[in-house]
Design a protein around this nucleic acid. Structure first.
Ligand SMILES: [Zn+2]
Ligand SMILES: [Zn+2]
Ligand SMILES: [Zn+2]
Ligand SMILES: [Zn+2]
Lengths: 153, 153
DNA sequence: ATATGAGTGTTATAATATAACATACCTCTT
DNA sequence: AAGAGGTATGTTATATTATAACACTCATAT
């Protein structure tokens, strides 16, 4: 996001990463799962389940919701995508980060999302939690605002 | 949460706080809005819109969804409640904190939620965002895990 | 009293997600 | 090659969450 790049490379990298993950974890990147992951990456923004569904379907053929939700579940379990809670939408992840740590910058103008990879805040949040007697297992941070591109306009 | 307290006092305090807020902001805590706020506080956990709806309704009378969603919208705009995004549920707020800063400890066992009031992490996140050229307007942190009560069991 | 805006009632529908069960398809064993 | 067992998909139905649109009521301010 906000950096020029060959987006087709992102997608290739994501698929290749997914294939490796599946070998390592002994699970299968079936055609449906692969297609959903590709569509998520093509979108370049968080994409909603029913938009994926529409793109999966062709004129003479309609996929049903469970198809896409199952693929999303699989991809999520295997750390290949994230769900942006405040948008009910899904975005690809190409970073090797702890699965319990996710942080996003969400532009409310253009809707693009960038994942923040930064371990310190996570650590601080874990420590604060523990002080309260709470045992954290997962941290999700969603920061809304305006990206640099949109700020310039 | 996780601290013994007279919960009836929480509710009273919340209503009194809401009344003050409404005077200050020149808006109205109508009977519906007040009732919804009370029900949210009575729940003691995040509560869902349709559960509120059920509680608002009596045997011979059913409220409609817009009634509760409008009340929730009002309460949220006026910083009297928070929405827990990962649960599609709503919880009361009695803290005087910046409206753009909300952090929650969410116990996945008992479903109770505690709000964390702690300014440092927020500041750190703002700074990290700005370094990326992003102008933040709102931070939401949801930390899932196990509360001390549930850990003991 | 009457105009104005805020609040509520009502109907309908949109958007998001899952349950349940049937069928197909891999992969391993024999 | 046949069968068993598990994984994945197809299919139907339904649950859950949320909003649009328009009519009506009510407070209150001039
Ligand atoms: Zn990630
Ligand atoms: Zn933007
Ligand atoms: Zn709060
Ligand atoms: Zn608990």
């Amino acid at each position: 996001m906000w950096k020029r790049h060959r987006h087709s490379e992102c997608i290739k990298e994501a698929i290749s990463r997914a294939e490796k993950t599946c070998i390592a974890r002994k699970c299968r990147l079936t055609p449906i799962r692969k297609k959903v992951l590709e569509l998520i990456w093509k979108s370049h923004k968080p994409i909603k389940a029913y938009d994926l569904l529409a793109q999966l379907s062709s004129d003479n053929f309609t996929e049903k919701p469970p198809t896409v939700y199952r693929a999303l579940e699989f991809l999520h379990e295997n750390n290949l995508i994230h769900r942006i809670e405040s948008q009910n939408a899904y975005i690809g992840c190409n970073a090797d980060h702890d699965s319990f740590d996710s942080k996003f910058l969400i532009c409310d103008k253009c809707n693009e999302v960038e994942e923040l990879i930064e371990p310190k805040v996570n650590k601080a949040l874990f420590e604060i939690s523990k002080k309260q007697g709470f045992t954290p297992s997962l941290v999700n941070v969603e920061i809304h605002g305006t990206c640099s591109q949109c700020a310039q306009r």
